[in-house]
Design a protein around this nucleic acid. Structure first.
Lengths: 216, 216
DNA sequence: TATTAATATGAATACTGTTAAGTTAAATAC
DNA sequence: GTATTTAACTTAACAGTATTCATATTAATA
């Protein structure tokens, strides 16, 4: 009794890459689940997607999903992480010279809203649904969410440094900007039949108004 | 066969007020269901409230609820109508002289956000959850939602009339204001653990920034 | 008192997330 | 090459869900 594994890292023989292959396969299935979940969440809404539906799509038993994700909320969380990464990449594509930081901020704001409108369900999943199922998500050290907000921080502080914006708290300034773009994005998504002003006009006006209001 | 009711309005005899009493009782139960639903929705979240739970609370069978409301979404809708009325009343309590329309707008914005933070679940139910379950809600003629937005319209147009705000579209201006307060309200509700600036500072800055940005 | 109408319910349908126990198949040990 | 261990996956079940339909109860009227 009490057998001890001796070959934990003394892995002689040709079966060398076995573990790696298995890990790769495991990761593959994880990704498969993830993208099936995203597709269903986006097309049918988080609440209308069952674990069984996801399982059917990938042709596995529902319980298999639980070997890869703690529960449905965890699945949602992983989907949202991807979305945030996506958003971050989209924003960083801009990355122009900071000689005119206000223009950079303006463009970033526009990109943010457009991202939300291009993937409305993903946006809501990330910024509205997820917080409901996963409480206590602040800005965890090293998280993608933190990276996104840092992107905003850098832009804003450049505007303040160049004395274009009022010399107030960087944090507050960034949060004001976020409020504005978040607000208009969600309103446009949630009330598509509201008699909005022409969409791009509204978005531009929201961003311009906020920037003007922040200027020194 | 084919019996015809003759006493539809020739209602002789003492049983005169019966119909009225029955109607009153029916309305009472409707209200009872409604307030039980609101309480549960608010405390446990729409998704975590079952028809059975509501039924238990009012000590009726679950099926009874369906005699008063079409389905769960209809129940949600009615709860949200009440919330909007509540919001409208809260806003109209302000109703001061319009000699300083900007100050009125500022206070109204603050009241709006504070309402959202005081009843966060009601706010989300009304402005985020409901649109998901009931699509196509623009601004229906005579609806309470329309009344709320009209309140905003009036304030804004006064600011424009007095040439304090830029001479741009009233609609757009109102929508910009709404975006700002909606955005900050939802962010504060959904990400309570985010390292926000002091709450009231943030709210005031959002409102002040927007107003400043709108000024001529 | 009998009839009619309103109101409420029990049982059933077809779902839901999740768990515990069991099965199968692959990799390792001897 | 056979036995054992480990990993991957599934079956069955639990306790719950929204909703519907046929039935029962209750109250008002004829």
């Amino acid at each position: 009794m009490n057998t001890v594994k001796l070959n934990t890292f003394v892995n002689k023989g040709k079966a060398m890459g076995t573990k790696e292959r298995r890990a790769r396969e495991k990761e593959q299935l994880r990704q498969q689940i993830l993208s099936a979940a995203r597709e269903l969440f986006v097309n049918e809404g988080y609440e209308n997607v069952s674990m069984r539906k996801i399982a059917n799509k990938i042709e596995y038993s529902p319980t298999t999903i639980y070997l890869y994700f703690k529960d449905k909320a965890d699945l949602l969380d992983s989907v949202c992480q991807e979305t945030l990464l996506n958003l971050l990449n989209t924003l960083e594509e801009l990355k122009e010279d900071t000689s005119d930081p206000v223009e950079t901020l303006r463009k970033s704001g526009k990109i943010y809203v457009e991202f939300g409108l291009k993937y409305p369900q993903d946006y809501k999943l990330t910024f509205v649904i997820r917080p409901q199922f996963q409480e206590g998500l602040g800005l965890q050290e090293g998280s993608i969410g933190e990276k996104v907000f840092n992107y905003l921080r850098v832009m804003v502080s450049e505007c303040i440094k160049q004395k274009i914006f009022r010399q107030v708290d960087v944090e507050t300034t960034g949060q004001v900007m976020w409020s504005a773009v978040h607000g208009v994005t969600l309103l446009l998504i949630d009330f598509p039949d509201f008699p909005w002003t022409e969409k791009d006009t509204l978005i531009d006006t929201v961003i311009d108004t906020t920037i003007k209001g922040l200027q020194a």
